[in-house]
């Protein structure tokens, strides 16, 4: 019954502060990227930056980096499934 409650080690608070700072910086980048004339690439640039931010949140704030690998595996299953949903829907709409 006395399994370790925090699954190992504590993450230093400074890590969270740095991640937060990085997230704010990326928000600034994505806003300013809007004013750069990226044309069609703009939406992809925005999505790329958002995905980097999401990765930071998942890995650090949500602790996936420090959890057992099964969590990462499950998340990959989710992303693969969602990728299928998006992909096969767009095979239709990109070819109408």
């Amino acid at each position: 019954m006395n399994a370790p409650a925090q699954e190992g080690h504590l993450v230093p608070c400074s890590v969270y502060v740095w991640v937060w700072a990085a997230l704010l910086c990326l928000t600034a980048v994505t806003v300013s990227a809007k004013y750069a004339d990226l044309q069609h690439l703009a939406i992809f640039a925005a999505l790329l930056i958002a995905t980097v931010k999401a990765g930071l949140v998942v890995l650090y704030f949500m602790h996936v980096r420090f959890e057992k690998p099964i969590f990462a595996v499950m998340i990959l299953v989710l992303l693969a499934t969602y990728g299928i949903y998006i992909g096969l829907t767009f095979v239709d709409y990109a070819n109408r």
């Binding site: 096969l88 095979v91 239709d92 709409y93 990109a94 070819n95 109408r96």
Partner: peptide
């Protein structure tokens, strides 16, 4: 009324 390619893929 899906795209033809989509119908073949599915």
């Amino acid at each position: 009324g899906m795209a033809d390619l989509e119908r073949i893929v599915f």
